Amino acid sequence: MQSIPVGLVGVTGYTGMELARILAVHPVLKLTRATSRAEAGKPLKAIYPFLEGFPAGDVGISAPDAADLAASCKLVFLAVPHGAAMDYAAELLAAGLKVVDLSADFRLHDAGVYADWYNQDHRHPHLLPEAVYGLPELNSDRLKTAKLTANPGCYPTSVILGLAPALKNGLIELTDIVADSKSGASGAGRKAATAMLFCEVHDSFRAYNLGKHRHTPEIEQELSKLAGAAITLSFNPHLLPIDRGILSTIYTKLTRVLAVEDIHALYAAHYADKPWVRVLPVGKLPETRYVRGTMFCDIGLVVDPRTNRLIVVSAIDNLCRGASGQAVACANLMSGLPVDAGLFLAPMMP
């Protein structure tokens, strides 16, 4: 099959790094342009030595230029912060390119909600209805015709996949949902910050942004669509002293008395044709190490009969499934490729 040239705007962060790793061995999507103002003029392997010996490592880093990207690429990944991505997206879409945005700029349908949570106005609200939320298990058909994809956040991916079958089957109450999520340090990005220094993170465990994390409205928006009714949940993130991975423990109230075996059967049926979601056998619970570096979302189910709660535990890799790998899956669908092209990845063990 003929290769499809793609570009990467913002190559120096962890999501840009992970995209470079995945695209280096993709059978069809060929990394042709990589941009960074700070690193312009260098080959990609100069900042990422792990790309030595791969053709992608020889790609020259340049300053972002929409005309050059339009002349060289069919699709562009935006791995830049929220606020900056929306302007790049508007310019690249106008130049005729397809865009996968890894920031939060196009995830929320309501520009007012975006302004409330991200403390800035959305400068291109006319593009919000055009953006397709890039969760392949939910929106694969729409992604096949999308010009602009809003790549989901890492925490939302773990929570939405964990709750989708329960909501679609009316298993749980729509109130009193609590998502307790733990992420590795790479989820905070690559910028220098005292709170993320080794001695601040290692051998410790802490909560942060309780009740006010910016992924909250994204989770509520997508869960509400699944439920067909407005959902407000309590989302509580924590920082784990590991490099990568997310473990979400989600507490819900069952609408009726159900055995865990029956719920497991419904979950297994829901994801029967979604091979990246692995519903673990009853009695087994996910661990971050078993999804490291992959597209898998492992789900474990527990029913607490004393409280009539369904407890859902989900595990993903925050950089691959929760960001860059998912972006490549969306790009695959947008390019007419199988969703798993270049993404048949086994977990990195130990």
Rank of each mutant, 00 (worst) to 15 (best):
D58P: 06
K191E: 15
A268D: 11
L102T: 10
P217K: 06
W117H: 13
K212C: 10
E91A: 15
V312A: 02
A40C: 05
W117Y: 15
E91I: 09
F296K: 03
K225S: 08
A164I: 10
A70C: 10
A67K: 12
Y133F: 15
T232R: 14
V277H: 02
L102K: 09
A131P: 10
I172G: 01
P165E: 09
P281N: 03
G134H: 04
S181V: 15
P241Y: 07
G245A: 04
I242E: 08
A20P: 09
H238K: 14
L285N: 02
G41M: 08
N332K: 07
I219S: 01
E261A: 15
A230V: 08
T216D: 00
K284M: 04
I219N: 02
L345C: 12
L343K: 05
L285P: 02
T252W: 00
G189C: 11
R142H: 12
T232C: 08
T307K: 12
K98S: 14
V201L: 10
H238Q: 12
G283L: 00
Y271N: 02
E220K: 02
T232L: 09
T255V: 10
K30M: 12
S181N: 07
R309K: 14
L8Q: 06
V113M: 08
A227G: 01
A272L: 06
R289Q: 10
S72C: 10
R33G: 01
T232F: 09
A188D: 04
A24H: 04
E130A: 13
H124I: 09
L171H: 05
L333T: 03
S158G: 10
V257W: 03
T35H: 05
L69C: 07
G57F: 03
Q120T: 13
R33F: 01
A207Y: 14
R37I: 08
L223S: 01
K191F: 15
L239I: 13
E220G: 04
A323I: 07
L174V: 04
Y88G: 07
G153L: 06
R190F: 14
V257Q: 14
T255F: 00
T194W: 15
D176C: 06
C330G: 01
A229W: 00
Y118S: 03
P64N: 11
L127H: 01
T157I: 12
S140I: 03
W117D: 00
N119S: 15
T194P: 04
I316G: 04
V6D: 07
S103E: 06
G83K: 05
T249M: 11
V260T: 11
A66Q: 11
F235C: 05
G336Y: 04
R214G: 15
P27W: 06
V313D: 01
Q120W: 04
T307S: 14
H82G: 14
L138W: 10
K98F: 03
V279S: 02
L240I: 01
A95L: 11
L44A: 08
S181E: 06
E200P: 00
H122R: 11
G189R: 09
L127N: 01
P27R: 03
L239H: 07
G112C: 07
G96P: 08
A265Y: 07
E218T: 13
G7W: 07
G189P: 09
A259V: 09
H213Y: 13
D298L: 06
A272T: 02
C199Q: 15
I246C: 00
D110H: 02
L167P: 06
R278H: 08
